[in-house]
């Protein structure tokens, strides 16, 4: 009877350990995953803000010539060759900054896609951002140009030279969304969710430009 009780106690201890250790590891994995998510979100915010700002780093006459549409042609590489200068600057800045933790996490890369154009007289309706053809559906980055009315209302999607002479462009809004995949990391053992991250940033022209 006593031997049976002792064996029962031992079995209970083993069972308790077998239950507690996976739960503990599960909690630790998820805690680390949340920390990683926070960190990558910070990185995404930063890359998006710099991308928006960098559209103004291009020479003023190189930004958004008439009919600008920054979405690349199907099959175009991330080198962004052939894009208008302002769009290319934004793309190069975004991908140049969004470089860390890509090995640790299965970061779904996308290319930059920008819509908009120079209406010249505001007659052409705003264009909506269009996803780059080669972009994974859950990882898109877009930078939208826009004009600001005197009251402060942002008109997204096009440059209005009549409203904002002489350049027309006076606000850039970049946004990026992506999903993090922990499948290729040891965290995959206890992390069963795929967080979706989103960042948005606006930039206004600096006082001095080339």
């Amino acid at each position: 009877m006593r031997r049976r009780r002792r064996r029962g106690d031992d079995a209970q201890a083993v069972l308790e350990t077998a239950l507690v250790i996976p739960i503990l590891l599960f909690l630790v994995c998820n805690f680390i995953a949340v920390m990683v998510q926070v960190t990558v979100q910070e990185q995404l915010n930063s890359a998006t803000a710099l991308a928006a700002q960098s559209r103004f780093q291009a020479p003023e006459n190189a930004i958004d010539p008439s009919g600008t549409r920054c979405c690349g042609a199907p099959g175009m590489s991330l080198a962004t060759a052939g894009l208008p200068t302002g769009c290319r600057y934004a793309a190069e800045t975004f991908y140049g900054t969004m470089t860390t933790y890509t090995g640790l996490l299965h970061w779904l890369r996308a290319t930059l896609c920008t819509s908009g154009g120079d209406s010249g007289n505001a007659a052409i309706p705003p264009m909506q951002p269009v996803a780059y053809a080669g972009s994974p559906s859950n990882a898109e980055v877009s930078c939208d140009i826009g004009s600001i009315k005197p009251g402060g209302t942002v008109i997204p999607g096009y440059v209005d030279r009549a409203l904002n002479p002489p350049a027309g462009l006076n606000v850039v809004t970049c946004s990026a969304s992506a999903s993090l995949d922990f499948a290729d990391t040891p965290l995959a053992w206890g992390v069963f969710w795929t967080p979706t991250l989103h960042a948005q940033a606006e930039a206004l022209p600096p006082p001095f430009r080339q």
Binding site: Q43, S46, A47, L50, Q53, S54, F56, Q57, A58, Y89, E92, T93, G96, T97, T99, T100, P206, F208, R209, Q210
Partner: peptide, 8 residues
């Protein structure tokens, strides 16, 4: 950590 951008 790094950040890359064009100069103004």
């Amino acid at each position: 950590i790094s950040a890359t951008t064009h100069t103004l």
